[in-house]
Design a binder for these strands. Structure first.
Lengths: 109, 109
DNA sequence: GCGTTCCTATCGATAGACGATGGGAAGGAT
DNA sequence: ATCCTTCCCATCGTCTATCGATAGGAACGC
């Protein structure tokens, strides 16, 4: 089973960013949600996710604060920043551009 | 400018395989063709392409033989094998599966 | 002869994802 | 009380693939 970004690295940030549009979430929740929405096709492993979140923090695309989860566990909630939204739009566009180009090749090459 | 597989590694083999469906081509030609068909969005660098071709050779997905190019240069022509066609079908399917899942996330997440 | 296009190929550095691993707290079951 | 499962965070080392730089040679037009 290919895990999400094993086939398409570089899309992890995009996916994480997009997932946060609905509101703040903790890492574990992000992983669950992606798995659910993609109907088990995309698996965001924790060892891929946390480094990605660190990256996004460093780049200022998300901010984080500690709190309590729905299940009353200690959890770190990540929130999209304004810069994060811009980055999301940009990455999304780029993604479609590339995928479109690949589809063109798959059709006509 | 993001180059093709810089955003989407793992797709290089797929692209190369697909390009060879039309018939045998040499490496340089493959690079040109992809660039052309993708309207300059996908750049298959030579330092990415030749290793990829070596991989495909080793895996038996293509075979190669030396010959003369259209311009009368010494060139190595790569041809898709039966296994290569199967691999292409498989990779294509997988690609669509993943892209579909990502699109689902981009819509609903 | 000289530059340009064509064509092949390798090397070292880099980046990103993954599996394995470790830890800890909450809550229910026995 | 203790155990087990689920939840939640995080890092480390490995691995794989791409990339930029680099190298070289043959054909052709000028």
């Amino acid at each position: 089973m290919k895990t999400a970004a094993e086939l398409l690295p570089g899309t992890l940030d995009l996916i994480v960013l997009r997932t946060l549009v609905r509101g703040p979430m903790h890492g574990y929740g992000i992983a669950q949600r992606v798995k659910e929405i993609s109907k088990d096709v995309l698996h965001v492993g924790e060892s891929s996710l946390y480094p990605a979140l660190q990256r996004l923090l460093l780049d200022g695309y998300v901010k984080a604060e500690w709190g309590a989860s729905e299940n009353n566990r200690r959890a770190r909630f990540y929130t999209l920043t304004a810069a994060g939204r811009r980055q999301l739009a940009s990455e999304r566009e780029e993604f479609e551009r590339i995928v479109g180009a690949i589809h063109a090749v798959l059709r006509f090459a």
